[in-house]
Design a protein around this nucleic acid. Sequence first.
DNA 1: ATAGGGAAGTAACAAAGGTTACAGATGGGA
DNA 2: TCCCATCTGTAACCTTTGTTACTTCCCTAT
Lengths: 211, 211
Amino acid sequence: MRQELKENYGPIFEEALLKEIDQAAIFKEIPEGTKLMEIGDYIKSMSLLVSGVIKVLREDDNGDELLLYFLENGDTCAMTLNCCMAQAQSEIRAIAETDAKLIMVPIQKMEEWMAKYRSWRNFVLQSYNDRMYELLETLDSIAFFNMDQRLLKYLNEKARVTNSKNIRSTHQEIAYELHTSRVVVSRLLKKLENMGKIVLNRNHIELLDLD
Amino acid sequence: MRQELKENYGPIFEEALLKEIDQAAIFKEIPEGTKLMEIGDYIKSMSLLVSGVIKVLREDDNGDELLLYFLENGDTCAMTLNCCMAQAQSEIRAIAETDAKLIMVPIQKMEEWMAKYRSWRNFVLQSYNDRMYELLETLDSIAFFNMDQRLLKYLNEKARVTNSKNIRSTHQEIAYELHTSRVVVSRLLKKLENMGKIVLNRNHIELLDLD
DNA sequence: ATAGGGAAGTAACAAAGGTTACAGATGGGA
DNA sequence: TCCCATCTGTAACCTTTGTTACTTCCCTAT
């Protein structure tokens, strides 16, 4: 059995299910920046994330983006579940934020395992649960917070998932993900720097005493 | 077997499952305004909506609200699913927008039926799917649209679920649900009236040629 | 070394939405 | 009938965010 499967999903899946996954799945390594899913795509397989970070984005009518959430080790994309179940098109875009490793399961197996394995049912429902919760969090940010608070939250999130206080992004990139303009981001970042919360450099931002 | 169960869920559930639901469930009628679920509640049963409309709300730190979506006949609240599965507290508030009839199923049955009935699995996953989609729609509105567009969308939604072009709300009530202020709502409603899209009256609003 | 391009800083202004204040309209109950 | 609470209209003003424009800085490829 593949080492990565055992390590990451061994504790939550039954032995028999692990074996089935091992046989049915394709193991895949993808470099940073790879587009895993595009809005409108029909999805043919479900991905279990083993390492790395995937960012999930929504798009407006002008083609501008908004970051919904990050996926990490042990996560799967509930949108994939959606699409598989409903034979519908993807509502979101998924891009590898870092190099990543995936276990890809053909969707025919999903329904089969739902009937067969309790741990699989729990995993799928828990995933929906987690993604729903993250969507609510994102919605809270947009509906209830000002841009400076959203920016701070974004920087913290980014530091958490990349496991580094050093954020390698340009202001323009941050602006895209928060669905605002570069000038606004620069203005607010400068404010945060003056407050002693961050240090600004060309192409990267250093977090200090955020909380 | 209860008539309402047969009528509303007969087409999607197997006969055996319908019988089990009929035996296990409690049938309930609730008047408009009833609070079905509060933020922080632990949920003990899952509700299948038979008639009427339920509104689902999110709250900010000041106690101010934001409408997430309406539930209608045939819908169930995915948040309930969440809470049951995770033994977690409710993230949302649910209030009867009109008089409503519910079929309440004890949560122990859910897991049992997930293993046993394919139609139940499909129903639960489809519900997650639908609610996720509605959350995305709401998020789009807030992130990408101006308040006047959101207001128009709100009026249309409300007209749709209540099946009436006559919306019996005060400006203050609308402001709560859109998470803005009464003055802003009055201002934009007046603009819509001047554009010939609505007619304003005390305590109710008449929709004209919206699209 | 230097030109050129991307990145960042900043000023000035515009637009959207939130806030405060107050006036007038309406309708239900004493 | 009249009083009062509630609802609505509107003006004036403020804050936040978005836009435009221009400058400066820095890195890299020639």
